[in-house]
Design a protein around this nucleic acid. Sequence first.
RNA 1: GGCCCUAUCGUCUAAUGGUUAGGACAUCGGCUUUUCAAGCCGGCAAUCCGGGUUCGAUUCCCGGUAGGGUCACCA
Length: 465
Amino acid sequence: MKKQTVINPLKIDKNIITRIPPSPTGLLHIGNVRTFLFNYFFTKQKNGKIILRMEDTDKKRSKKEFEEHILESLKWLGLSYDGEIYRQSERTDIYKKYLEKMIEEGSAYISKEDSSEDKRAEVIRFKNPNKIIEFEDTVRGKISFDTTELGDFVIAKSLEEPLYHLTVVVDDFEGEITHVIRGEDGISNTPRQILIQEAIDAPCPQYTHIPFILSPDRTKLSKRHGATTVTEFRDKGYLKEAVINYLALLGWNPGTEQEIFSLDELIEKFDLTKIQKGGAIFDIEKLNWVNKEHIKLMSDEDFRNKVLEFLPEEIKDLVNSNEKVFKKLLPIIKERIEKFEDVVEMNQVGDLDYYFSQPEYEVEKLFWKDETDSVLLKKRLEKIIEFLNEVEDFSAEKIKEKIWDYASEEGRGSVLWPMRYTLSGKEKSPDPFVLADILGKEETINRLKNAIEKIDTNNQITQGI
RNA sequence: GGCCCUAUCGUCUAAUGGUUAGGACAUCGGCUUUUCAAGCCGGCAAUCCGGGUUCGAUUCCCGGUAGGGUCACCA
């Protein structure tokens, strides 16, 4: 058998033009964002052009606010496009010319319809040549359809009201689009569009259909399953780098074990032929992990600003009034959050305020496990103060060095638990050395003295003095 | 229902005829440790089913099953 020589469109490196064609009929869905991302990686890698095209021919459903949401989402992600935004609603004349030409040439015709049920009496239908259409999809290989079953489908409601299939083909043709990268719902639409291409003598671009993003129950990802737009993830304190990274990994991987990528690395390593065929479930746990990894990569300054951005007002004043403590607290926050919204939670459960003001607590909680001897407890706290006074360079390490041996002799819990509880007033917190370091020498000793006072007061009450 | 697409641990995936089927997330256990978080180490866990082809199938072919898409005067 003679082998056919075909130029693989994926090998073309010059004059690549792709498009991202959202329809402003709803908030921009995360699935569309991933499709944009794949277009973006591919196009940037090939130094091509990427066109943003608003598919707003449906006047009833298209809304300005949705277009704004699309723009806002892309802007947040930092994805740029070439040239001006281009709206199909502003190109009616162009589609009209094609329609007239098609009607003249006989590839389309005005069709009389049953005008009941709100339908119009006349529409423009495509004259289906009824043939088998075969095309090569980048991820699925050859796909063939018998287009006979499509019938003479409608391509415009009137000369001034073109419909999706016509506008897509005309715009891809006029825009000299070389690669169409879109969701897998486009597969079934492709034969129709190829038919129209043939009718208007337009070339066939390389098609790449990307599988869907699914919810945990394997249905289409929807509101019911939580966030479905990137702006929601932004508002919850996910990093754009993490969202891009995670979305890229959903349905694609470079074939190595690398999982954390910068945008530039994704552009460099992305490969359309490595896209998965099956749909992928959106896993928030993995996104959280990816986000945390990107948080670790942040500069101290960026991290600080981001925390400040999410910090509730009531604690912001405290934070601003004690810059030294806040600076030392940041690493603690960093290891305890997955996304920046988590600082709100930290504040709510009281994991933040005790760094800035004396904690309230019950004296009984100061005792380690079953211990009850308040004289001994007091003695230990006094001893800790003594040690602390001797520490020159008041750092977690030095403090630990100073206290460790004593704590080991007495029983670590017996010394360290009350020390930590005194400083935090919490069952759970960072260790007492780190706490003392953050609080500073003066405040630490202050809180210890305060605890001793509390013990005394408590004893007087219980003894009925 | 017709047509089209898909199928590896719970999840994301690697391995395209020969591997103890690899990694990551999650989970479980251990180390560390006054508590928590983080970190480190380790465990559990998968080729949808049935036929072929082959010395040998996750991998190729056919059938079934399951899931998804599409069949608009939406995009």
